[in-house]
C-alpha cells in the first residue's frame, strides 16, 4: 500500500492518465484544471477513485485548495499520515 509521497505521486499519475492529452507530460506542477481539463464533476469522480485506491476519505472541502498534481498528492499524503 502506498504511504510515502513518491509512491502516492506515482499511483496518482496512473489515475490522471485518463485525462492527459498526448502532448502533455504529467509533472507535480501540472495544473489539474487548466492543463488536464478536469472540471468539477470529473474531479469529484476522480476523488472517489483515489479514495478507493488509497483507502481514505477525502473531504470535498479540502479540494478547494488543490490546483496541481503535487497539491493533490500532498493532500492524500496528509490524510494517509493522519490515519
Amino acid at each position: 500500500m502506498a504511504s510515502n509521497y513518491d509512491d502516492i505521486l506515482q499511483k496518482l499519475n496512473e489515475h490522471l492518465k485518463q485525462f492527459c492529452p498526448p502532448e502533455i507530460e504529467i509533472t507535480p506542477d501540472t495544473d489539474l484544471i487548466n492543463q488536464l481539463a478536469i472540471d468539477s464533476v470529473k474531479l469529484l469522480n476522480l476523488v472517489m477513485e483515489i479514495e478507493d485506491e488509497f483507502d481514505i476519505s477525502v473531504p470535498l472541502n479540502a479540494l478547494a485548495d488543490v490546483q496541481t498534481v503535487h497539491e493533490l498528492a500532498n493532500l492524500i499524503h496528509q490524510i494517509k499520515s493522519a490515519q
Binding site: 477525502v58 473531504p59 470535498l60 472541502n61
Partner: peptide
Amino acid sequence: CRLSGAEIIRFRHNDAQDLEKRLRR
C-alpha cells in the same frame, strides 16, 4: 453541507456498500 462547515464525503449514487465502506473508514 458547505454552509455547515462539516467535512463532506460523497458516496456512489444509490450504492449502499460504497456508503458502508466510507463509514468504516
